[in-house]
Simulated assay, not measured.
Amino acid sequence: MRALPICLLALTLSGCSLLSRSPVEPAKSTADAPKAEPVKPKVTRPAPVRIITDATELVGKPFRDLGEVTGESCQATNQDSPPNIPTARKRMQIAASKKAKANAVLLHSCEVTSGEAGCYRQAVCVGSALDISAK
């Protein structure tokens, strides 16, 4: 019975020695020439689009409706994380920022639905992209 723990100890020690570096391998020099990092192109980000939840904020301001925009958050299966409305709102904002001259979104509705194609549950936000002119 004493032979079993001694064999296991010998096996463990020999297994750990296989993980160490062989002394025959040449050591890599850390004084290599510095690598030139590739130049990343400058990405121009669109101006932030604010979300307007109350249409009375637009009273007296000149604005132009640029069309409907949507954002969605999908839960593909029952085991996935549930869809959330803040993600759908953010995606709606991003969709509006891709429209030319949009600087605001008038939020019409956000809702969570079930049974959509490809989604177990889905959060959808719908709004209108707006170009609000400064007076």
Results as ranks from 00 to 15, higher is better:
L11I: 13
L107C: 02
T12A: 15
G71D: 09
T70N: 14
T70C: 07
A27S: 07
K135M: 07
R2H: 08
R121F: 01
M92K: 04
A10N: 04
E72A: 06
A27F: 07
V112P: 00
S109I: 00
L19T: 12
S97H: 03
A31W: 10
A36G: 07
G60L: 06
T56L: 09
I85T: 03
A55D: 12
D54Q: 10
I94L: 13
S29C: 01
T12W: 10
C74N: 05
A117M: 05
I52Q: 04
A88Y: 02
G15M: 13
P41K: 12
S20T: 13
A95V: 01
A33D: 03
S128C: 00
A123C: 09
N78R: 08
S109T: 07
R2D: 08
A33R: 11
L66Q: 09
C110D: 04
R91G: 01
A95D: 06
G115H: 06
I85Y: 02
L58K: 02
P34V: 13
V69E: 00
T12K: 01
E25R: 14
D32Y: 10
L4D: 08
D80K: 01
C74Y: 02
T70K: 14
F63H: 09
K40C: 03
V59A: 11
M1R: 13
C16A: 15
T12S: 12
